[in-house]
Design a protein around this nucleic acid. Structure first.
Length: 309
DNA sequence: TAAAGTCCCCGCCACT
DNA sequence: TAAGTGGCGGGGACTT
């Protein structure tokens, strides 16, 4: 059945494995949290399981897991043991994460009752039927409600882990690790506005989330730092600071990445000229569009269009 | 593509 | 005291 999850505080992260686990799901938290980073204090990262020993993976090879759930603290009997441990961890103030189908574990543990959660879209119907008291949102990459975080399928676990890292260690470290993994620090289709912020002080972050949605709808506008800062009722300085904290990108970086994403779509699905596309996506000129496109994708817009049409 | 001009980013620090 | 805010300015990124 279900999956793995991590109880974390950045000093200590426990990932729960089980027999016939998908190695990808084990590798994702391992790649984000398990390796040393110069700007990050060493994390006590461990994989644990109910009964230590050899576990089969779905990829045909086996892994040895020495750690039992004692790392998660306490004792009793599986699988109730696992649920109890998770509850105990949550009571102690740990952050509890259910990646992919790991959301089922949190749900069985009763942690998600009355809360928002997500899981792999293919299991959304089953999940909703099984746990009617849980408010399921299958359209997001990951979702935080209080200290409980669930992520959607497979690769969304990466977005989720990077979100956790950004939250606890800051955007610089998170971006650095994202770069090392050769993935976008903040995926297009941006989930920022969907993250349920647990603390009341984040009214501003919510405003930024709304701003992100609005700018996407109005990319053609000639946005500037000042015009955007006014919209979220912040000074320039605070706006850039909050924006970076929330998304891991600077305002201009993000704007450019949004404009480039739309550029790609228009190149693929329309026959608009580069000039017309530049106009529609908010680049001041075709020259500017070409510069950014080339820098980001190492290919000219025209060449991109040719290969994708 | 090149270069001048403009705008942004972010460390710093005084001030809530 | 601790945490957040916002003006300032140099270096650098972006635009034309």
């Amino acid at each position: 059945l279900p999956n793995l999850k991590a109880a974390m505080s950045l000093q200590r992260i426990a990932v729960v494995a089980y027999d016939r686990i998908s190695p990808f799901h084990l590798a994702v938290p391992g790649a984000v949290f398990g390796e040393r980073h110069p700007d990050l204090p060493a994390i006590d990262f461990r994989v644990c399981t109910e009964i230590p020993g050899r576990l089969q993976t779905t990829a045909g090879f086996t892994i040895d897991v020495e750690q039992d759930l004692g790392f998660l603290r306490q004792a009793e009997r599986p699988p109730q043991l696992l649920l109890d441990e998770l509850n105990a961890a949550y009571q102690r103030g740990a952050q509890v994460v259910g990646l992919c189908l790991g959301a089922y574990i949190l749900a069985y543990a009763g942690l998600l009752d009355g809360r928002k959660a997500t899981t792999h879209w293919a299991y959304a119907q089953d999940f909703a039927a099984r746990f009617p008291t849980i408010n399921l949102d299958a359209d997001v990459l990951y979702l935080e409600d209080e200290a409980l975080i669930t992520s959607a399928g497979t690769a969304a676990a990466l977005d989720c882990c990077l979100y956790l890292l950004r939250k606890h260690a800051g955007p610089t470290v998170a971006n650095s690790i994202a770069r090392r993994l050769v993935i976008s620090p903040h995926r297009q289709g941006g989930q920022a506005q969907f993250i349920e912020q647990p603390l009341p002080k984040t009214a501003q972050d919510n405003r930024i989330g709304e701003l992100i949605g609005w700018v996407r709808q109005n990319l053609a506008h000639p946005h500037t730092l000042d015009s955007l800062a006014v919209r979220v009722l912040m000074s320039r300085r605070s706006f850039t600071r909050h924006f970076h904290q929330l998304t891991g990108m600077t305002v201009v970086q993000w704007l450019i990445s949004e404009r480039l994403a739309l550029t790609q779509r228009l190149l693929e699905s329309t026959s608009l000229s580069i000039e017309e596309i530049a106009e529609q996506v908010g680049f001041g000129s075709a020259v500017t569009l070409r510069q950014h496109f080339r820098k980001a994708y190492r290919i000219s817009p025209q060449a991109w269009r040719n290969t994708f049409q």
